[in-house]
Computed example of a mutant assay.
Amino acid sequence: MNPVRRLRSSSRTPFLQVVKTAVAVVAAVLLCELLIRGPFPTFAAIAALLVVQPSINQSFVKGLERSAGVLLGVVLATGVHVLLGDAVWIVLLVVVLAILLAWALRLTPTSATQVGISGMLVLTTGVVTPNYSADRILETLVGAVVALVVNAVIVPPVLLEPAHLAVARLARDTAAAFERIAVGLTEGWDHEQWHQALLQARALRQQHGRTEAALTSARDSLAMNPRGGRHRTILDRDVAVAEHLRVLVTRVTGMTRAVRDNTAPDLRADPMVGRIATEVARIGSDVRRLGAQIESERLTPGELAEGPEDTALEHALTAPLAVVRPNSRHWVLIGALLEDVRRVREELLGEDD
C-alpha cells in the first residue's frame, strides 16, 4: 500500500468547518493580543485549532480536555522549575512525569498529550518571561472559549441528514432481502443461489452498525446545539425505525439461512411455500414503502416544523397463515418460516406477543 495514501482522508472536511476554524484562530489571537501583552499567543491558536469540531458537544469536550491538559502541564512544570531549577534534564524529567501523571489520572489522549507539551513549552520558552505560566493558561482558555462560541454561532452543525438517509437505505436493503426470499421460494433456487442471498442478508448487520453510528453522530451534533430542538423529533423517529429494522435484519438473515440449509428441489411444489412467499413479498413491500417514506421526508427547518406527525403505513400484510396439514418432508422448514413471518408481522404491526 502506498504510504502517502495514509495521509489523505476518504472524505473531505466540510468547507464551512475550515472557515470556522480559521475565524476562531484569528479571533482568539487578536483577543489575546488585547488582553495579554507578550509573545505570540501560541497556546490560544492551538486551542482554537483543536476545539472547532464537527459538533458543539465535541467542541465543548475538546475545550475541557485541552484546558485541563494545559493547566496540569503548566502547574507541573512550574513546580519542578521552582524546586530543581533550569536544566536540560529538568525538561526530560517533566515530560516523563507528565506521562506518568496522565496515566495515573486516566486522562484522555488529548489531555494526556497536552500535559507533556505544555510542561515542555513552559520550561523551554517561558521560564524567563514574567507571569508566563498564568498567561499560557489564560491563552488556552481564551482560545477554547472563542472556538466554542464560533462553532455555536456560525451555522451550528447538524448531522441529521446522513443518519436520516442511512436509515432509509437500511430499510430499502432490508426490504430487498425479504423480496429475495419470496423470489427464491417462488422460483425454486438451488443451494448456491440461497448462499449468495445469505451473504447479502448478513451484510445488513454491518450496514445496521453503520446506521447506528450515524444516528449517534446525529444525536451528538444536536447536543448543546441551539438549532437542535426542531430536529430532535425526526431523529427520535429515525432511532425508533432503526430499532425495528434491527429486529427485521435478524429475522431476514435467519429465514434466508433456514432456507439455504433445508432447501430441496421439490420445495416449491408445496402449496404452503407459495403462500409463505406471497406473505414475505408483502413484508418486503411494507418495508420498502417505509424506506421510501423516510427518504421522502424533507429536513428543511420549515418542513420539519410543519411535517405530519402520523407516519403509519397501510400495511399489505394479510391475516396470519395457518397450516391445516403439515408437509411430512418440509414441515420443519415451513414451521420455522411461519414463525418468522409471525414475528415479523408483529414487529411491523406493533402487535403484542
Rank of each mutant, 00 (worst) to 15 (best):
N2Q: 08
R6M: 14
L7Q: 02
S10T: 12
S10N: 13
S11Y: 15
P14S: 00
F15R: 12
K20Y: 06
T21V: 11
A27L: 15
V29W: 07
L31A: 12
C32W: 01
L34S: 11
L35C: 08
F43M: 11
A48F: 06
A48L: 03
L49S: 09
V52K: 06
Q53A: 00
S55N: 04
I56W: 04
F60L: 12
F60V: 13
E65C: 00
L71P: 09
V75M: 11
L76P: 01
T78A: 10
T78F: 10
G79H: 01
H81Q: 10
V82Y: 14
L84E: 07
D86L: 14
W89N: 05
W89H: 04
L93S: 02
V95Y: 01
W103R: 15
T108K: 05
T113A: 11
T113F: 09
V115D: 06
I117G: 01
V122M: 05
L123R: 05
T124E: 08
T125H: 14
G126S: 01
V128K: 14
N131P: 07
A134F: 13
A134K: 11
V142D: 00
V146H: 03
V150C: 09
N151I: 03
A152Y: 05
P156G: 02
P156W: 05
V158G: 00
L160G: 04
E161I: 10
E161D: 09
V167T: 01
A168L: 08
R169M: 08
L170P: 02
L170H: 00
A171S: 04
D173Y: 10
T174Y: 01
T174V: 04
A175D: 00
F178H: 02
E179V: 06
R180I: 08
I181K: 05
T186D: 07
Q193K: 14
H195W: 14
L199P: 03
A201V: 02
R210N: 15
A213D: 14
A214P: 06
S217Y: 12
S217G: 14
D220E: 13
A223R: 10
M224W: 14
D238S: 13
D238W: 08
V239D: 09
V241P: 07
E243F: 15
V247I: 11
V249S: 05
R251M: 12
G254H: 09
G254M: 08
V259R: 03
R260W: 08
A264E: 10
D270W: 03
D270G: 02
D270E: 12
V273C: 02
A277L: 07
T278D: 12
S285D: 15
A292Q: 14
Q293G: 15
I294A: 12
I294T: 09
S296K: 14
S296I: 15
T300A: 13
G302Y: 13
G302K: 10
G302L: 15
E303M: 12
D310A: 02
A312M: 06
L313I: 05
L313K: 00
E314R: 05
P320F: 03
L321I: 01
A322R: 08
V323I: 04
V323G: 02
V324L: 12
R325H: 10
H330N: 07
L333I: 05
L333M: 05
E339H: 15
R345Y: 03
R345L: 01
